[in-house]
Design a protein around this nucleic acid. Structure first.
Lengths: 200, 200
DNA sequence: TCCCCCTTTGACCGATTCGGTCATTTTCTT
DNA sequence: AAGAAAATGACCGAATCGGTCAAAGGGGGA
């Protein structure tokens, strides 16, 4: 890529990054069209290719950028001393909500990238694939599982939380004018209820 | 459409329906390609258009067919006397699992159809849109909500169930060789756990 | 004011893919 | 054997794709 991209006004950089994330997240590498991306970003097609060389180049840059971004967000909102499973989940959620305030589609983009099947897209990424999920996993190891009551399987509970928070996010995104804060607030209510039910 | 479609061997009908459902469910109306559908169904392109006239025609037929199919499945597995919320959820699940044994992508296809934004696709469907969700809603009204303990919000619980069962289904589908039965069995474990936690 | 250079544009390219057609072949029925 | 129905797949024009490039725009130094 062309490093001069970073000399652009921050606002323009973000517009381009956001638009690209959105289309890759929603349609996958293959069906995301560069025409749509530049239209959304409000720039010309030539400019996009001037800075990123190719569609694969753009995709690789985005993945790397998102990875670094989310890693920082995650480490700045999680507390290594917290041992309550649900409070850790809330910290992770908070870091994601904060990230989405700048790039609404980061989370979705990264999830989609992990399922990508197009060889070129995989190749553009495979070097930097030190998954965020590992990081999340490490944090969750700190959790004190013994607080779960008998009859509350913490593995199932974890899956339910994953699916529910993801489904809720998609629902909020689908209903135009996505507000990360509103999503976060509702998500916390879900987490708190499950916490209440899972402990003695 | 051409009514002679129903004179085809049942197995061929199902192959065509399944393939079409799959691609519409996975890619939406616009990005589902008739070339891919006929390749999957193992028929020629001419035949598809011979029976359904156009892509929209095929889509409309599929929606109507799926709607009728699921309506029957639903009414044959739900018991009007059941008042336990979670048991009703299990009956609905059972009807869906049974449906997926014949058409693995019915459920996904119908969900996707409700979110469709392409005008032609909406038009091909809008007459028959007496949503299944209403039917499900009616059945759930029978549920005895008072059994939920304080602190267990039955509305949130309903959403959590929706998101979790859907997420679990997608997970099973993504992991090739989808088995409706295995999905159903795991889903029941989720439901049972939430039932245990939600009642006194 | 003029010039230079970097940014930015969008018309354009060849390739591919799309929904849909139709002359032709294969299969079935009698 | 013959006629009808089922089935094929090469083909069509249109649209869309990723990517190029000559030219326009614009800001700053002399």
């Amino acid at each position: 890529m062309n490093e001069k991209f970073f000399d652009l006004k921050k606002e323009k950089q973000d517009r381009i990054i956001s638009a690209a994330m959105k289309h890759f997240a929603l349609n996958g590498f293959l069906h995301a069209s560069t025409d749509d991306i530049v239209k959304d970003a409000g720039i010309s097609k030539g400019l996009l290719f001037h800075y990123f060389g190719s569609k694969v180049g753009l995709y690789g840059f985005l993945y790397d950028y998102s990875m670094r971004f989310m890693t920082i967000e995650l480490s700045s909102y999680t507390n290594k001393e917290e041992t309550d499973y649900f409070e850790i989940i809330k910290q992770i959620l908070t870091s994601r909500v904060d990230a989405m305030r700048q790039f609404p589609y980061v989370q979705l983009f990264l999830e989609r990238a992990e399922e990508e099947e197009v060889p070129e897209a995989i190749a553009a990424v495979h070097e930097k694939r030190m998954s965020l999920e590992e990081q999340v996993g490490t944090i969750l190891e700190q959790a004190d599982i013994t607080r779960f009551k008998a009859g509350a399987d913490y593995v199932i509970t974890g899956h339910i939380l994953d699916y529910s928070l993801r489904g809720l996010m998609l629902e909020h995104i689908k209903t135009g004018a996505f507000s990360p804060e509103r999503y976060g607030a509702e998500a916390v209510r879900y987490i708190d209820m499950l916490k209440r039910l899972s402990y003695n």
